[in-house]
Design a protein around this nucleic acid. Structure first.
Lengths: 126, 126
DNA sequence: AATCTATATTCCTATCAAGGAATATAAATC
DNA sequence: GATTTATATTCCTTGATAGGAATATAGATT
């Protein structure tokens, strides 16, 4: 049952945080590391988990791997992501992540990161 | 994090089915067995799992144990139960369960089962 | 080609959950 | 009090997952 797969993805804090951040727009792994303050393995593994189950998509750009929410999520996924957004509002952990996300690109709107055609990393290579 | 606990409860088919049925009103274990067509251990264990995590409450009435959704669910639980209801609509498994539930008390509205002050079992003892 | 950077994978260990068989408990009935 | 009915718990095995250390890969840079 698809629904189960979705819930399995949602029952880990790290994955919830990833999805919550992704709701603001695509992001590369190195930025997730900064935003969540979690080790690379952990971030990468959980993103992989979400990817194999269709909750996120990704695309390589240079060295960077850009993750995003799927373009056409199923009704069930859409409903649950919306519910998560609702529930995450009041939670300090999620709010802190979003605060750090905004700091990542000072003076630049969060959503604009990828319109600049790089991932925001220093080298500007991507 | 409370939210995680909720999602952990939701990532098992049997528990989803139990919650879906409970959304129609309280029910005793023996009726869950009939509705889900699953063995007693399985039903009882999953209800216990849900109970210890606060997703259902229960009350003994004679030999029967009546389970119900909590009277004052948290905002997060409310949101997720509503989301589940939404998602379950289109799923044949859930629909079949509800169909069996209705058959349990022929000529009686489902919600009326407990207003009759018994659990609907033959002996009428509860 | 050697190196660097970003990301993924492998290997390990520990924990948890599911399912079933068997048994225990608790209340009702005889 | 013995039995029956409804439900819970224990014990067992099996499979899944999380986390981290170490290593591999893939692309960019020099």
């Amino acid at each position: 049952m698809d629904l189960i797969k979705i819930y399995e993805c949602l029952c880990d804090v790290t994955r919830l945080r990833l999805l919550n951040v992704l709701a603001q727009g695509p992001l590369c792994v190195c930025h997730f590391q900064e935003v969540l303050r979690e080790p690379q393995v952990k971030i990468s593994k959980h993103l992989g988990y979400l990817r194999t189950r269709g909750l996120v998509a990704c695309e390589r750009r240079g060295n960077w791997m850009i993750y995003r929410l799927p373009e056409k999520p199923s009704r069930q996924l859409r409903a649950n992501l919306a519910c998560l957004q609702d529930c995450a509002q009041e939670n300090p952990v999620f709010r802190r992540d979003l605060a750090r996300l905004k700091k990542l690109t000072p003076a630049v709107a969060v959503a604009a990161v990828y319109e600049r055609r790089d991932c925001g990393c220093e080298s500007g290579a991507c």
